[in-house]
């Protein structure tokens, strides 16, 4: 018996009395089952499994031999892990602020009914089509002191010019940031542009009638109205930041100075696979999950908890 005829049978049988809630839209619910199962088994199940095994001394293969919080104690005594967290916080804050600010600014400029808007939009969005690995490799060459910007400017005659962010522990995060912004800003711009286009023309007319200057309209009227777009952008950009891994691998592999550009995801990978210490890697990834939850739970509470929508 096929799913649809089953649904029909249920519908006929329950035609007389009011249908229970779960049978409404039954075909849509059946269609969602694979995704629900995937989410439960892969995401929730995998997460629980990881957290459970982070309390064991699993090495190359997982095994249930409990060691309590030992893996976490070791994790938080590792200088490399602490530096990774600091690096990620710095990169994360800078990246969030700059992608959203620059993305919004570009979207506003794009929104001025300029000519060739399509062309500009395509150019701006192109970097997003490249993976972080490719972005990282390209920028590694651009920032390379012999072949990149520094080399070119010196060849032009300015021989004292120095621009070598990737080989200096103090500036390496800015080097990563340049590449990250180049890749991500165009995407944020497109999201923002869609948001701006969603603002009713009448709002603009009303603002103009009241004589409010354009910049002020953007600031106090349009931005508050674009709240959902900002939140979507924030979630997408923030989740990209926490799993930051491939850009660092391609540009610096965590150096210079040993760990000047280490990030938590690299720690997880190195200890799970190179050091063959699954327990330690699981503990680190559990901490990453926890940090995501610390950000997400207050936000979800504010967004969905306060009042009932609809």
């Amino acid at each position: 018996m096929s799913a649809s005829s089953e649904a029909d049978a249920i519908r006929t049988a329950s035609a007389a009395r009011p249908r229970p809630r779960w049978t409404r839209n039954i075909s849509a619910k059946i269609a969602a089952i694979p995704m629900i199962a995937t989410a439960l088994v892969v995401f929730v199940g995998g997460t629980i499994w990881t957290v459970v095994y982070s309390f064991t001394d699993s090495k190359l293969l997982p095994r249930l031999r409990w060691v309590g919080l030992d893996q976490y104690e070791r994790l938080w005594s590792q200088n490399r892990w602490l530096v990774s967290i600091e690096n990620l916080m710095f990169y994360g804050v800078m990246s969030l602020v700059f992608t959203i600010a620059m993305g919004f600014l570009l979207a506003v400029l794009m929104d001025q009914k300029i000519r060739f808007e399509d062309t500009f939009r395509t150019i701006m969005l192109y970097p997003f089509a490249l993976s972080f690995i490719v972005t990282g490799l390209v920028w590694q060459w651009i920032l390379n002191p012999q072949f990149g910007i520094e080399g070119v400017v010196r060849d032009l005659g300015w021989t004292s010019f120095s621009f070598d962010p990737l080989n200096n522990p103090q500036t390496v995060l800015y080097g990563l940031l340049i590449a990250g912004l180049w890749q991500g800003t165009g995407f944020v711009m497109c999201l923002m542009l869609a948001g701006l286009r969603g603002i009713d023309e009448d709002i603009w007319k009303a603002a103009r009638v009241d004589g409010i200057p354009t910049w002020k309209t953007y600031l106090v009227v349009v931005i508050p109205m674009m709240r959902p777009v900002f939140i979507t952008t924030l979630v997408i950009v923030a989740s990209g930041i926490i799993r930051l891994y491939d850009l660092v691998v391609a540009m610096t592999s965590g150096g210079p100075g040993g760990n000047a550009s280490q990030v938590p995801a690299m720690y997880v990978y190195d200890y799970m696979f190179q050091a063959q210490n699954l327990g330690q890697g699981f503990a680190a990834s559990t901490m990453m999950l926890l940090s995501v939850l610390i950000v997400l739970i207050p936000w979800a509470y504010l967004e969905f908890g306060g009042k009932k929508h609809g």
Partner: peptide, 29 residues
């Protein structure tokens, strides 16, 4: 030594060789 100890020492050594970590601290670690 196990790969785990090797990796811990790699992390320590690269930090030691590439920064100003004092030999005493590195030794204890």
């Amino acid at each position: 030594w196990s790969p785990d100890v090797q990796k811990l020492n790699e992390d320590l050594m690269v930090e030691f060789w590439k920064s100003d970590m004092s030999p005493e601290d590195a030794h204890a670690k």
